[in-house]
Design a protein around this nucleic acid. Structure first.
Lengths: 387, 387
DNA sequence: CCCTTCTAGGCAAGAGCCCTGACTAGAATG
DNA sequence: CATTCTAGTCAGGGCTCTTGCCTAGAAGGG
């Protein structure tokens, strides 16, 4: 039975959801405003507020002079209850760990960064992760808690400053390595650079978060962020940096594949030097562009200095494969050397039998973390609405 | 506002949907059975039946002795009204056109086939399409109309045999060429075999169908059929016949890409003879496996006779690309020479750095038409429920 | 042949949710 | 202090669903 059985409870739930959603958008509303905002009648909206207040999801804040509204009785303003739920957005990369703690409005409660030595050792990474998250949840530090923007919400958010720890209701983690879709663990793929090592973010965070921990590859989150900036339904995000990554968005959603390894393009067959068919990652080895030592990461500085045409045509093979298999509206290029070579790549793409548009990524400020943050916000809100 | 505003109408609509859905599943039900089947109380179910009967969506059939149920009062059986809506499923291939007319139960009302000469000329194809559809809609022929299976539904379906034409509420078309997602037109891609030519199924069917005409590539429909047989969420369906095709299923849906050309793999870069990188379709040209004449179709018989290893490794490149970009749970192989070489292909796939499972398609009886039919059924039902 | 038994369907009563319209509360304005 | 205007509540009514009981109507047993 797909849709739920009809019952009056459904209507009540729907009403409450509308009210909560309106409060998420506008932070502070009177019953009357709620009524016009949601299209629900005044008595019904009022009743819903009563229910939600009783359940502890909504609180009566101070009242407010109606400002420019002139005469009339003053309304009481309601907002989401302070303890209604927060979420964690975390980015794990070779450069370090960033953790952000956000509330149901998407406001930043706290942010912490923890550096990691190069090359990143898995244990160090896991420890940095734990530290950043602990700091951001108010352990050790008294939470600053005044990160909320917007005016008038003071009364509601003041109690965030309480100096005891807050447990987020979920965490969304971005990791700069392939992620197993089911376990959330980081995976070493054959021949691919393994930047962070075998760490298990779910295990680290399970004790620090009340609900689920969602882990995914950083490029997938970057694509999510890109989609917020430019809401295309079908595109590919090619990330060219120390590692090679690619996110695929079809019909408006990031598609992760069965194991979560969609877009792990290291050994896609492409055109190598001399027109020989070979896996993409081997091109960099052949051209001497991989970093020395055990790490198999690409040497970005060297690559940007030499700008070898062989690299561009190898990427052209990837673009062609994406064009034929995915049929994206555009292909977005990100990553340090990707952005550096984006014009050459676009030129190469224009020569393909099926023309594919190529452009640089629009989001350049912490794209992965932005995507994870947006997802974390969606998920807490969903969690709040669903009960 | 994502969910609808709460209102009593929602509940009533929900109830009616439940009742209709139950009747779609069981064809013949009494009010009492409807009540237990849907979980809705007897008076409410009865009221819904009254509404739906009045609206002409449900009819009172004869009654029936309760068979083995022994004593008790006899109930009156209800079913969907005969004229509630039908759908067309059509397959257009170089071998000919097949049209099927189905009702809301998924039963076949009529089926017609129309041959097309080889090579297929676009005008002939369009005419065959028109003829098959007209026949199946009861024009010219008096509809046989007795295709319905199941017992006891006689009274309800008898009026199908009326010999005047019935207009389907929608059509779903499978075409053996790339299809533009927005216009539904068949597209000639550079270097790819163009089997049917520039025909426009939407234009041909628009006057013969009351609602929308949905056109898609035959391989996508075959994948849909495969999914009904083995409901995997992530797989790829590689079709190797006169033309090369590929369908991509991610998160339980066929993904078509921006223009509808996802999986048109003719010029994916792969390993050609001598290890040279080249577009997939060129491999066949180089090996002399394309048919003579204007048509650039692959000569399947010749290929099956020679079974060149170069073809197998070229397909291996495709498998590798799918594995890396899509990350399917399995790759399903269909098409005449695909099935013929499936073991060789599986062996080749096992040698890839990321092991991908390969198997032959499970559905081998008109896979594209099956997929289109299933979709047509889903869509009429949706149409019926949504009002 | 009549009475019992059993099930389909309908009726009545009641509860819950939402709406409209009118009323009360309370503040600013002149 | 009277007016004006808006927030919030109250009363009434309509609709939908549910439970429980009753009637209709057929089969089976004495």
């Amino acid at each position: 039975m797909d849709p739920a059985r009809p019952s009056q409870e459904i209507l009540r739930t729907l009403t409450d959801e509308h009210v909560l959603r309106a409060l998420m958008r506008h932070r502070l509303l009177t019953r009357a405003e709620l009524s016009t905002e949601t299209g629900i009648s005044k008595p019904t909206a009022g009743e819903s507020v009563r229910r939600l207040t009783e359940a502890g999801l909504v609180v009566d804040t101070g009242r407010r002079t109606p400002g420019g509204r002139g005469k009339g009785r003053v309304g009481t303003y309601y907002s989401l209850a302070p303890g209604i739920g927060t979420a964690l957005a975390v980015s794990i990369a070779p450069e370090g760990v960033v953790a952000e703690h956000i509330d149901a409005y998407g406001d930043l409660i706290a942010r912490a960064e923890a550096a990691v030595g190069r090359p990143a050792r898995p244990d160090d990474v896991a420890q940095a992760l734990a530290e950043a998250v602990d700091e951001v949840c108010g352990h050790g530090f008294a939470g600053r808690g005044d990160g909320s923007v917007g005016s008038g919400a003071g009364a509601a958010t003041a109690s965030w400053s309480a100096d005891h720890a807050v447990r987020p209701r979920l965490a969304v983690v971005s990791a700069a390595d392939p992620v197993d879709r089911h376990s959330g663990r980081l995976l070493q793929l054959p021949d691919a650079p393994f930047l962070l090592g075998e760490i298990d973010p779910v295990a680290v965070l399970a004790g620090r978060v009340d609900g689920l921990v969602h882990v995914d590859n950083d490029v997938n989150w970057a694509a999510e962020a890109e989609r917020k900036a430019d809401p295309l339904d079908d595109f590919a995000y090619v990330y060219l940096d120390e590692g090679l990554g690619c996110a695929i968005v079809s019909d408006g959603e990031v598609r992760r594949g069965h194991h979560g390894l969609a877009g792990e393009v290291a050994h896609l067959i492409t055109v190598g030097p001399g027109g020989v068919a070979m896996p993409l990652i081997e091109v960099f080895g052949l051209l001497g562009l991989r970093r020395a030592g055990g790490a198999t990461a690409i040497d970005v500085d060297l690559l940007l200095e030499k700008r070898p045409p062989e690299v561009v045509s190898a990427v052209g093979g990837l673009i062609a494969a994406l064009g034929t298999l995915i049929d994206p509206e555009v292909i977005v290029i990100g990553g340090r050397w990707g952005i550096g070579l984006v014009d050459d790549i676009a030129q190469e793409a224009a020569r393909l039998p099926r023309n594919v548009q190529v452009r640089a990524a629009a989001v350049d400020n912490e794209p992965s973390l932005s995507g994870a943050r947006a997802d974390a916000l969606d998920r807490v809100r969903e969690l709040i609405l669903s009960r």
